[in-house]
Design a protein around this nucleic acid. Structure first.
Lengths: 233, 233
DNA sequence: CGCTCGTTTGAGGATGGTCAAGGCTGGTGG
DNA sequence: CCACCAGCCTTGACCATCCTCAAACGAGCG
């Protein structure tokens, strides 16, 4: 909690100036693509576990790219119910919004290093280079696609199918059938619209059915891929 | 069913040529904004109730704007479970995708008139005019926002809250507390991740609690707006 | 007038939530 | 190096919500 506050303070002082300086000096030359441009215009900042990256309602001042660690983007209802819309892993871009306000909140799931880039210079660049504009659009479109698929999971799948969908998604994204989960059972539950107990029970069930191995609670090995794919509805 | 096939055939023959002719001849001049450009480049086509507009996996050849009627965009799992991602009403744009394939299917909910526009000339226009590119991006971003909010509904709200969220969304979109629903209970159920029976029972419950009036099954009058807002979590 | 499709209502049951307790693990300090 | 503690995870028993199956109802149309 304290660290969270600290990183927040830092971000609004010296770091901001550093990021702005980069943005101003480096955008004169033509960048080949968005990621290259972000690299030149941004600064790397470390976020502690559970620290806030941005909050719902804040103006969208920065764009973030995950270098290491993991980020969750979520919304909470007044009574505390939380829905996580997505987890962002190294290489993913977080916080792109066409509107100037963040509609969701973002936190570091574990200690994470992010590339932080001022948003307005990126938008300015996009008006001059249609390829950049296209990449920004594509990122939003990919996110839309992801969330739409998650909607089928939340609206029409049972607990077992949801957990399997999650595991297959993670395996696909880390390019491995051995998955080191950065997030807790609570995070998974809030992503899948379940409770922590149901997630836990379902993991156990999959282990009993030899579909997965659980050498540690945060490490999952996908064993019977056929079975899992079948369960993916 | 037959009508559906027919409109499909028509679309791939003379209508396509008409739309293309418009696209080629009208893009020479500079358009002030996207909707104006679409108007000039597109042709109006009528779709019967339940007829397919495009299917999942098809190449995204056209962009559509609803003139009258209503459109549902959805995905079905192998075993028939259907999740509707959204309803599109007059003024809404349907079928914009950054990728070249449709990830979902679209159907007319009721007899609808759509403006159909070739996609590639619009994209070409966007590379030349950053305002157009921006509008396209904004449309995708607004859709993302809508779907993300729906995710909270699907992941974290109970049946009553879901139905209320739906009614308030519809009221907001038609700018009226008297709503003529173009869609069936089944459509609503598949949008909210519920069954038709649960939707029906919830409507009845809201009517009994004087929160709404149901002069006809497809007509809803929002009566106690405070109560409804409270239930919107 | 009667048929059809969509909607409502009812009874019973399954899935996942709630509440509660116990276990494991990694980090800290003696 | 070991013991303890805190946080996270698992497991169990019970319960609520929503689903399933079934039937009746009603509005629109030939």
């Amino acid at each position: 909690m304290l660290m969270q506050q600290e990183s927040g303070k830092i971000r609004t002082s010296s770091f901001t100036r550093m990021i702005e300086r980069n943005a101003v000096s480096k955008t004169a030359g033509r960048q080949r693509n968005l990621h290259e441009a972000l690299e030149l215009m941004g600064a790397k900042i470390e976020y502690d576990r559970n620290s806030e990256i941005y909050g719902e309602g804040e103006s969208a001042e920065f764009i973030y790219k995950v270098i290491s660690g993991a980020v969750r983007v979520y919304k909470v209802l007044d009574d505390g119910r939380r829905q996580i819309n997505g987890f962002y892993l190294p290489g993913d871009i977080v916080g792109i919004e066409a509107s100037s306000e963040h509609n969701f909140s973002a936190e570091a799931v574990i200690k994470s290093r992010l590339l932080v880039v001022k948003r307005t210079p990126v938008l300015a660049l996009a008006t001059r280079q249609s390829e950049i504009a296209n990449e920004l659009w594509s990122i939003t479109a990919r996110e839309l696609d992801h969330v739409q698929n998650l909607m089928i999971t939340l609206g029409r799948k049972n607990a077992l199918e949801r957990v399997v969908a999650f595991l297959l998604e993670m395996a696909r994204r880390v390019h491995s059938f051995t998955i080191e989960l950065p997030m807790s059972r609570q995070d998974i539950a809030d992503y899948l619209g379940l409770t922590i107990e149901t997630v836990s029970r379902t993991f156990t069930q999959l282990e009993n059915e030899q579909a997965i191995e659980l050498p540690a609670s945060r490490r999952v090995v996908l064993r019977n891929r056929n079975l899992l794919s079948q369960l993916n509805a």
